[in-house]
Amino acid sequence: MTSHHQVGNALDVWEIGLSMTPAARALLLLGAAGRHDAGSRPVGERDRALLQACLPAGRWLDAVTECPSCGSQLDVELDPAALVAPTASEPQVSVVCGEYRVVARLPTGDDLAQLSPSGLVEELRTALLARCVVSADHAGRAVESSVLPEPVLLAVESAMAAADPGADVQVTLSCAECGAEWSSSLDPVRFAWTSVEHAARRLAVDVHTLAQAYGWSEAEILRLSPFRRRLYLSAVAP
C-alpha cells in the first residue's frame, strides 16, 4: 500500500495521518518527503528513511523513560544516525527446521500497513507470515504457511530478525540513581510522527499570528515561502 495523498505542509500531513495506523502514517510521512519507494523496502530501511526524512540533520532524539528498578525518571538523548542497523543485502531468508524448509522475504512497510488495525496479535502474526512466506515444504511436499508448526515459525521469525535488525530498535539504558541497566524498544515511527506534530502546531501558531495581524487567509499564509513567513512574523513580534 503506497499513500497517494497530496500533502504540502506539516498541517496537511498531521490532519491526514490522525486517523491512520502507525504503519500507514509511516508511508504517509515518507510520501510527503518524496520517498514513495520506501514502503516496499524492509521495515528497518523504512525506519532509517523515516528518521532521515523527518528529523533535521544533526538533531538528537529526546526521550523520557522510567527506571524499571527504582522508578526514577530518565531524560535520554539518542543519536538517530546510530539507531537503525543496516538491513542484510539479501531480502529473503531460507530456514531449514527438521523436515521443513521455508523461504520467506523480509516484512516491508507495505506489509505492515496492510494488516488490520483491529486484529489480535496472533492474527496479525499469521497474516504477516502469510504475506512473507514465499515457499514452504515438508519432506519435499509443498505446504501452506498456516500449517507450519510453532518451532518452524519461530525459526523463520528469528531469521527475519537477524536479517533486518533495524526492524526492532533496542536501546541500552542505565540509571544514574541505582545503576540498573536494561534494554528498551524504540519506535522510529512514533518519533517521526511526534516531530511532524510539533511542526504542525508551530505552523498553526504562525498562521494564527499572521491572520490576526494582516487578515490573510490560511491558504494565503501557507503559500508564503518559509523565509517570507518568518520575515512577516518578525515584523509582527520583533
Results as ranks from 00 to 15, higher is better:
R190S: 14
E122V: 12
S145Y: 05
P238T: 11
S225I: 01
H36N: 10
A142T: 12
T126I: 01
G98W: 06
E90A: 07
L128Q: 14
R59D: 14
A142G: 02
A130G: 10
T126Q: 12
Q92M: 12
R228I: 06
L61S: 13
C97R: 12
C67W: 02
A26D: 07
C97M: 10
A113R: 08
Q170W: 13
A10C: 06
A130C: 06
C132E: 08
S94F: 02
H198W: 08
D168P: 00
V134D: 13
W182R: 09
A23M: 11
V64A: 07
R223E: 13
P42Y: 05
R46F: 01
F227R: 15
E150I: 11
S225M: 00
L173E: 03
L233F: 02
N9A: 04
R201I: 08
V84K: 01
Q92C: 11
V121E: 13
D137W: 05
G44D: 04
R228E: 13
E123K: 09
E66Q: 06
D110L: 05
P149R: 09
E77Q: 15
A199E: 14
A53I: 05
R46Y: 00
V64Y: 00
L120I: 04
A10V: 04
H208R: 14
S19M: 06
A161Q: 13
E123T: 12
